[in-house]
Write a protein that binds this DNA or RNA. Structure first.
Length: 830
RNA sequence: GCCCGGGUGGCGGAAUUGGUAGACGCUGCGGACUUAAAAUCCGCUGUCCGCAAGGACGUGCGGGUUCGAGUCCCGCCCUGGGCACCA
């Protein structure tokens, strides 16, 4: 027995210099900087690995979400480098956006100046964190040498018909006379004016992402490197549906009411129609009916978000007009309703209250008839007066179509309309074209010139970029570009007459839809991309917040295809593997500038060093889950690094240790060596396959704890410890690279840690003579037995039954069944 | 409202393919060292019963499948993200 409290083999701490993160981390940084080891060029002889993080908006300083995602990506990059890959990991700035405008309003600093200052500060913070970036590739999207190429691509798309202009709805603040972002609308009111927000239609530019809808959808089935949840979200977002477009005649109206339905089988159940407030029928009725006019006006006074639209109270009024049912010839009343939008589809819907939940509620509220036209396939009773029935079933009350199932009815009815020429089968997408116009200053100018004679003309290539003037006075009401004749006054590229530039700027998602490609060739001066993009793309590992699961990732997939069709890149998909990291939450909510609930990582870096912060972020939660921030635990990570430091230095202080000779080890030495190689196997899998960094850290801690308990100063014992310490330093180096750099040197290695291969485990070290099995009786744990690793089932069961406690529960009952799970358990069922 | 996640001790989390629930860490409690404090080290730490051996209960709630369920199925509750102008 050892004396508890006594620690063998450890000289007094005074002999060992304490862990001082500042000097350790500075030394490591200087080594990486001077050796320029993270700068990479194309090398066809090597297996490339492009490791990318969603680039940050330069909001001022790093926040915990940044630290988390950048550390995840850095761990993967460094791990892959140790796997022998030729790793590119770049960094840059998503530099356009609203916060710069808000800062300008609040502090009177021009957006450009504010942005560049933030970038300088945050770049310093990133360097302090020790991320393995190739800084020679840094991209800043608000620089003309970057955004000129998206302007160029836009003009190419213009000529291909992939961009167009149409009217579209925005949030209008009637007091500030300005367009508001959804974020700036709070409970239906403008954030600064507090005035009720209205919907307003203005002409805006759109990119035809719907032209790629089928491809974007289909390819999801061949993307095993993406999480299923993200693929499902994108599938639902694209929302492909097969239906029928058909028309209801409206006597006296100029045009029939055209509607799209995915449930033509329910056509006989239509009891009313609903049109949008902006629909011509409603507009016409409003001219003569004050109540309708008032309703139509009220519909305009709501913001333009889908969430508002879906949750608001469903309202409507009858227009006093009837449509004619195309199959029965019966009159169907037409209503105007606030839940139909003119901008989606045809601005009119057919209502089947018996078999559609929203229609059912609306019908109940307004006393409209509910008609059952679908019965259950198994004959179970259906009462649509009491409850809506939305299942696909068998047609009833549907004339000649009675008895048909969904598919047969769909086809019969679709055929009927196609034969008579009054309707057709149609594939519809929920996905809408991408509106890229923003009525803001701090963005890339849309390269269009408006000429009275030639209409909208794209800026010719030799006149690009259209440079955003950076030295402006920014007031926050409207865009300063609208008040700058020096910006907008120009001449038409086609006819040479005086003309006017577009003053709207691009959605900032445009910049982030192709930056990943530009990192391959950030200095390409005469092309958007060059051949280097073909070498590096696609991105092998992309890491970023789950909040980007749809918009950013879908727009990037779209742009990748546009660039492909332009001959700029080869691959169709930009990101082979995707890791969506969870948010860092504080008080249960997303940390954000807007909410002001941020925790500043800088304070922790100053106090404990970058490695402690990195380690804590990796250890506190698995990467894909949300992480509720807590100040507890950072201290624990620091304590671990101190123990790690001390363990290595104590071992070194006791003199050199030779190589392990596996043939001569005693049982305890074999145990530690087995633990070492089990840990290598586990951490390799945790980092390489599972991205389970928290369990990788835990496994390293366990091994270090085992080393601490190991009391053996013999040459063989010290050799086994030495092997274990080398392995821990190598395996923790992706997560805590600075301290590992120092410890690697302390262990006497002369070649750089950064160039070391990942350790391999020795399968022969894992072998065990006896294994412990759990014994259950009826699935309940009743004992444990040690058995030979190669014991057969009968021997195991016999041994299990010999256990006194197992005996107690089996007693004289007859054994009905025994189950042996090799290496795990025995279950005796009585 | 719709789509996608999550819910396990006092806390963060582990349990990878249906097979020992609570690894690892934090907190707390007790102890060693110290004039003292900090730091460090050792031990204990899901709840309840029991001197102990051991037992009962226990993974948001209610059902189900199975020799065996945190894990699979059905129905709920709570909570995070997205919903096209926050990025």
């Amino acid at each position: 027995m050892r004396d508890p409290g006594a620690r063998p083999n450890h000289p007094p701490h005074t002999m060992i210099s304490p862990y001082q993160p500042d000097s350790v981390e500075q030394a490591a940084r200087e080594h990486w900087d001077s050796s320029r080891c993270f700068e990479v060029a194309e090398d066809d002889g090597k297996d490339k690995f492009y490791c990318l993080t969603m680039f940050p908006y330069p909001s001022g300083k790093l926040h915990m979400g940044h630290v988390r995602v950048f550390t995840i990506s850095d761990v993967i990059a460094r791990y892959q480098r140790m796997q022998g890959k030729h790793v590119l990991q770049p960094m840059g700035w998503d530099a356009f956006g609203m916060p710069a405008e808000n800062a300008a309003i609040q502090r009177g600093v021009p957006p450009a100046q504010w942005t560049y200052q933030n970038i300088d500060y945050m770049r310093g913070q990133l360097k302090r964190m020790g991320y393995a970036y190739d800084w020679t590739r840094e991209i800043t999207t608000c620089r003309p040498d970057y955004y000129r190429w998206e302007q160029w691509l836009f003009t190419r798309m213009f000529r291909k018909g992939l961009v167009y202009r149409k009217n579209s709805v925005v949030n209008w603040d009637p007091v500030d006379q300005t367009v508001l972002a959804n974020e700036q609308v709070i409970d239906g009111r403008g954030w600064r004016s507090d005035a009720p927000v209205e919907r307003r239609e203005i002409p805006q530019w759109f990119m035809k992402i719907t032209a790629y809808a089928d491809e974007l959808l289909d390819e999801l089935d061949r993307m095993p490197g993406w999480p299923d949840s993200v693929k499902t979200m994108q599938r639902n977002w694209i929302g492909r549906s097969e239906g029928v477009e058909l028309s209801f005649d409206v006597p006296g109206a100029e045009a029939p009411l055209t509607v799209y339905t995915t449930r033509p089988d329910t056509l006989f159940g239509v009891t009313y129609m609903a049109v949008a407030a902006e629909h011509p029928l409603a507009q016409k009725a409003a001219e003569t009916d004050a109540a309708i006019a008032e309703f139509v006006e009220a519909c305009r006074k709501t913001d333009a978000t889908e969430a508002t639209f879906e949750t608001m109270e469903k309202k409507g009024l009858p227009l006093g007009i009837d449509a004619v049912h195309p199959l029965t010839g019966e009159p169907v009343p037409v209503w105007v309703a606030n839940f139909v939008l003119m901008s989606y589809g045809t601005g009119a819907v057919m209502a089947v209250p018996g078999h559609d939940a929203r229609d059912w509620e609306f019908a109940k509220k307004h006393g409209l008839p509910i008609r059952q036209v679908i019965g259950s396939a198994d004959g179970a009773p259906v009462d649509v007066q009491a409850e809506v029935y939305t299942e696909r079933g068998v047609l009833v009350n549907s004339g000649d179509y009675d008895g048909l199932d969904y598919e047969a009815a769909f086809n019969a009815i679709a055929d009927h309309f196609e034969k008579s020429g009054t309707g057709r089968r149609k594939v519809n997408f929920r996905l809408r074209d991408w509106g890229v116009s923003r009525q803001r200053y701090w963005g890339a100018p849309i390269p269009i010139i408006y000429c009275d004679d030639c209409d909208a003309v794209p800026v010719p290539e030799d006149q690009l970029p259209v440079v955003l003037p950076e030295d402006v006075e920014f007031t926050g009401v409207g865009s300063p570009l609208r008040d700058m004749p020096s910006f907008y006054e120009t001449t038409c590229p086609e006819c040479g007459k005086p003309a006017r530039r577009e003053t709207d700027t691009f959605d900032t998602f445009v910049e982030s839809s192709w930056y990943f490609a530009r990192y391959a060739c950030p200095d390409a001066g005469d092309a958007m991309l060059d051949e280097r993009a073909r070498y590096w793309l696609p991105v092998d590992q992309y890491t970023g917040g789950i909040e980007h699961a749809i918009l950013h990732l879908l727009y990037s997939r779209f742009f990748q295809r546009v660039m492909r069709d332009e001959g700029l890149v080869e691959s169709s998909e930009p990101f082979t593997n995707l890791l969506t990291q969870g948010m860092v939450l504080k008080d249960g909510a997303k940390m954000s500038k807007a909410k002001g609930n941020t925790v500043d990582p800088q304070e922790l870096i100053d106090r404990y060093g970058a490695d402690t912060v990195r380690l804590f972020m990796m250890f506190a939660a698995p990467p894909e889950q949300a992480l509720e921030w807590s100040d507890d635990g950072v201290q624990g990570s620091f304590r671990f690094l101190k123990r790690f430091w001390t363990a290595v230095h104590e071992h070194v202080a006791a003199g050199t240790a030779g190589p392990v000779d596996p043939q001569t080890l005693d049982a305890a030495q074999k145990d530690l060596r087995r633990k070492t190689h089990q840990t290598i196997e586990k951490i390799s899998d945790d980092i390489g396959r599972r991205h389970s960094f928290n369990t990788a850290v835990a496994a390293a801690m366990e091994l270090l704890n085992a080393i601490g308990r190991f009391d053996d100063t013999s040459p063989a014992g010290r050799a086994v410890v030495r092997e274990a310490l080398d392995a821990v330093v190598l395996m923790l180096s992706p997560m805590v690279p600075h301290i590992c750099e120092a410890l690697w040197n302390a262990l006497g290695h002369t070649d750089a840690l950064i160039d070391q291969p990942w350790p391999a485990f020795d399968a022969s070290a894992l072998a065990q003579d006896t294994v412990e099995l759990v014994v259950q009786v009826n699935g309940k744990l009743r004992g444990r037995i040690g058995v030979a690793a190669d014991a057969d089932k009968d021997a195991i069961v016999a041994l299990a039954l010999a256990d006194p406690n197992v005996q107690r529960f089996v007693a004289d009952q007859s054994i009905r069944k025994t189950i042996v799970v090799p290496g795990r358990l025995v279950n005796i069922v009585v």
